[in-house]
Structures are given as C-alpha cells and as structure tokens.
Simulated assay, not measured.
Amino acid sequence: MKYKAMMQYFYENKSRRYIREKYVFNSMALRMLISGFRTFGSDVLFKPPQVTASFRIMLTEYKIRNNASYIQIAKKFGYLGIAQIYQWEKIYRQNGQNGLLSLKKGREPKMTKQKKNKQELTPEQNKIKQLEQENLELRIKNKALKLFASMKQPTDKKHK
C-alpha cells in the first residue's frame, strides 16, 4: 500500500492530499515517507535500516544536536518510526546513551511464564508422591464403579 502510494505520488503526480485521503495516512507519516522515499527509494520500505543500539544513539544524538524534525530524520536515516524516535529521544534525555543501550526489542509480555521449581526429591519423597498418585487413581476408579453399579440396579417402582 505504501509503495503504491509513493508510485502514485512520484510518477502519477497525485497530490499529498489525494494520497493521504485515499490511503488514510497521517499527515506527518506521509511527509516522512515521501522524504525517506525521495532519498532512499523503495529501500525505505523494503530494506529499512537495522535498528541497533548504536543506530538508536546516532539517530537520537543527531536529532537533538540539530534540532531535527521527523522529516529530516527520515531523509537522513531512512527510518520512519515516529513513535520510536519520540521514545528514544525521551529516554536519551532522561538516561543518556546508557538508556538506549539497554532497550529490548518488542513489548513486555502481558502474561509471564511461571517457572516450575524442580527440586530434587529424596527416595522417600518420591515413594510418597507415587503412593499418593496411586491412591487418587484408586479413589477415582472406586467412585466410577459405584456409579456404574447404581446405574445397573433396578428401580423400586413396580411395572403394572
């Protein structure tokens, strides 16, 4: 969709307004895309820069040092992630380079994996665990047999 929008903008001379309305682009995102596409061509979409700690630091320092806009960042680095750039700048201003070095890719998981505590059991504990499991199985079988037997017994009602 973005590639098609850029083809229409650059080769069919469609206006930014037309592209923005047809493809439902945010105005800033479209201007960044146009700027990046103008400099890097389709690579801005199909081969975006690899985001590493050093890339984040270099981009953020450039933005702060030059008071650069998001459009200037897209033109210089070919990176279009407005929200990420904003977050990186915020982190850099609070924690410096170290803040950007420790970033992990992706979101925090919503559900945490629970670690099972596997402790070494003594032979006696293993035997007790095994006997408890057998006891449970036998109780379940016993209840099932009682239920089955009660289903087989005739009812007290006499047939006339």
Results as ranks from 00 to 15, higher is better:
Gly81Arg: 03
Met28Trp: 05
Ser69Ala: 07
Leu145Gln: 11
Glu21Asn: 15
Asn95Trp: 04
Ile82Trp: 01
Leu147Arg: 12
Asn26Val: 00
Leu45Phe: 10
Phe77Asn: 02
Leu30Phe: 10
Phe40Ile: 02
Pro49Asp: 06
Leu138Trp: 11
Leu45Lys: 05
Thr60Lys: 03
Ile85Gln: 02
Phe46Ile: 02
Asn126Ser: 13
Ser69Leu: 00
Ala53Ser: 15
Ile57Leu: 12
Asn67Met: 03
Ala68Arg: 04
Leu147Ser: 14
His159Asp: 09
Thr112Lys: 14
Gln72Phe: 00
Phe25Gly: 06
Lys14Tyr: 05
Gly78His: 03
Ser54Met: 02
Met28Gly: 10
Gln94Pro: 02
Met28Ser: 15
Ile82Phe: 05
Gln125Asp: 15
Met58Gln: 12
Phe55Gly: 05
Lys105Arg: 14
Tyr18Val: 02
Lys76Glu: 12
Lys22Asn: 13
Met6Ala: 08
Lys105Thr: 08
Pro109Tyr: 08
Gly78Ile: 00
Ala68His: 06
Lys22Trp: 06
Ile71Tyr: 04
Gln84Pro: 03
Thr112Arg: 14
Met28Asn: 14
Thr122Phe: 11
Phe25His: 09
Met151Phe: 10
Ala68Leu: 04
Arg17Cys: 09
Arg20Lys: 15
Thr60His: 04
Lys14Met: 07
Thr122Glu: 14
Leu59Tyr: 01
Asn13Ser: 13
Pro48Thr: 02
Gly78Cys: 05
Lys90Asp: 09
Lys127Leu: 14
Arg139Asn: 15
Ser150Glu: 14
Met58Tyr: 01
Tyr9Lys: 05
Pro154Gln: 10
Leu101Lys: 13
Ser102Pro: 00
Lys146Ile: 12
His159Pro: 02
Glu120Ile: 11
Ser102Asp: 10
Lys47Trp: 04
Asn66Arg: 09
Ala149Trp: 06
Tyr3Met: 10
Glu61Val: 01
Met58Ser: 11
Glu134Arg: 15
Leu80Asn: 04
Asn135Val: 10
Asn26Ile: 00
Lys146Asp: 14
Glu124Asp: 15
Arg16Leu: 10
Gln133Pro: 05
Leu103Tyr: 07
Lys143Tyr: 12
Leu131Asp: 14
Glu89Trp: 00
Ala149Ser: 10
Pro48Glu: 07
Gly99Val: 01
Ile19Thr: 03
Ile64Lys: 09
Lys2Phe: 03
Lys157Gln: 11
Glu108Asp: 11
Arg65Ser: 08
Ala144Tyr: 09
Ile34Pro: 03
Asn67Ser: 11
Arg31Leu: 11
Pro109Met: 05
Glu120Tyr: 13
Phe37Thr: 03
Tyr23Leu: 10
Gly99Thr: 01
Phe37Met: 06
Ile73Glu: 03
Arg38Val: 01
Gln87Ser: 11
Tyr11Trp: 09
Asn117Tyr: 12
Ser15Cys: 08
Val24Tyr: 13
Asn117Ala: 11
Gly36Ile: 01
Phe37Arg: 01
Met151Ser: 13
Gly78Ala: 04
Phe40His: 13
Ala149Leu: 10
Ser102Cys: 09
Gln50Ser: 11
Met6Glu: 08
Asp43Val: 00
Ile128Val: 15
Phe46Arg: 07
Arg16Glu: 13
Lys160Ser: 12
